[in-house]
Design a protein around this nucleic acid. Structure first.
Lengths: 197, 197
DNA sequence: CCAAGCAATGAACGGTAATTCAGTATATGG
DNA sequence: CCATATACTGAATTACCGTTCATTGCTTGG
């Protein structure tokens, strides 16, 4: 009982490592158990089944991500600045923690889409948060009339695609320019007037 | 031997249908064989394995898509118009042929990512084509200095995300506005000057 | 020091799905 | 009408995986 929490955490950590290493996000309970240094049966003393573990892993990773973003946003007051800060920290985190990016952006849609909808929920969450920002900007007439849900979806989509492409095809040579391009793309995309920035 | 080509085509067609119908892109050789009206063993007289079939299916679907886009683009001379035509026809096709969208955007990344990289290749293709357009526009100074590879990636990403979201969460109520928003997002994103359109 | 209780084990079970192959049907050409 | 080749069949084989559970090892309170 003393080691209960610790072992649980170890299993979660092992799962993250196995996931990050495995091609295509394939993952087996046996592999996780091996990585965690336990027997397969032991796994079921800590999780009711494989899906419960995967749920936990996404929840954790997602919570970490959201937490970082929220903290970063808190430092700014203008919605444009908040958005820009979200973008920058998002890229920074995903490229520093590549395993996180691979798991959240690439593997989990595959892993969870069949049974539960957790991942879709997460993407939808991010989109919803972005939409709130856009609605606020729209209300202030700082961006032109638009379907803010579509814009928010497009916004999130650029990150998914760009970060995944960096993960799969290597990062850009001119990193500064790439980052600037991506941010500018979305700022222009939502319709921020250039005299404002 | 007479029926060889025909039966092969029939199997491919059956696979498309099974894929389109199945939730989550799960697909079994047995199901394909049943749909095609053959025994499971017969399948292996026409394809070396399941993966070979799936490769063929993506290749075919992708070729169809590209073909449609190319034909549409041919009707215009301005690169902006070509881009816009690509966007419109892409959305139109994907929403008319939802099974195609589901297969290309949702299922295949899951199905094929383990072994081959065909799907990533396909996305890269689309990005490359878009990049060519952007390079042309950049050379003509019609868009501002930017990392065109990043922009092209972002461009493609907006479509993936938006179309998938429409497939999963339902289409927008105000369809016109949504379409207009998406196109405007990308036109502004790449930096098309508003006095030009 | 022992026994009861708890944690951990990993072989075994049940299920699913890809692939094979010995056998069957069908067509062909002499 | 037979012999041969070719196409097809689907049950059996193989492989893998999630989950269970009878057994084993370990700890601890009396």
């Amino acid at each position: 009982m003393k080691s209960s929490k610790k072992l649980r955490a170890k299993i979660i950590q092992a799962a993250k490592e196995v996931l990050a290493a495995s091609e295509g996000g394939k993952i087996s309970v046996k592999a996780i158990a091996k990585k965690a240094g336990i027997a397969t049966g032991t796994f079921y003393l800590y999780f009711t089944n494989k899906e419960a573990l995967l749920d936990t892993v996404v929840q954790e990773l997602y919570a970490e991500l959201l937490d970082i973003i929220k903290k970063e946003r808190a430092a700014y007051t203008s919605v444009f600045d908040k958005l820009q800060a979200s973008m920058e920290v998002c890229i920074r985190i995903f490229l520093k923690e590549k395993h996180l990016a691979k798991i959240l952006l690439q593997y989990f849609p595959q892993i969870t889409s069949a049974v539960n909808t957790k991942f879709t929920d997460i993407e939808n969450d991010l989109i919803k948060f972005t939409k709130q920002d856009l609605d606020e900007l729209l209300a202030l007439k700082l961006i032109p009339e638009q379907d803010t849900l579509v814009s928010a979806t497009a916004f999130v989509g650029t990150f998914r695609e760009v970060i995944l492409s960096w993960l799969n095809n290597g990062e850009p040579e001119d990193w500064d320019k790439a980052l600037q391009t991506l941010i500018a793309y979305n700022m222009r995309g939502i319709g921020k007037r250039s005299e404002d920035w």
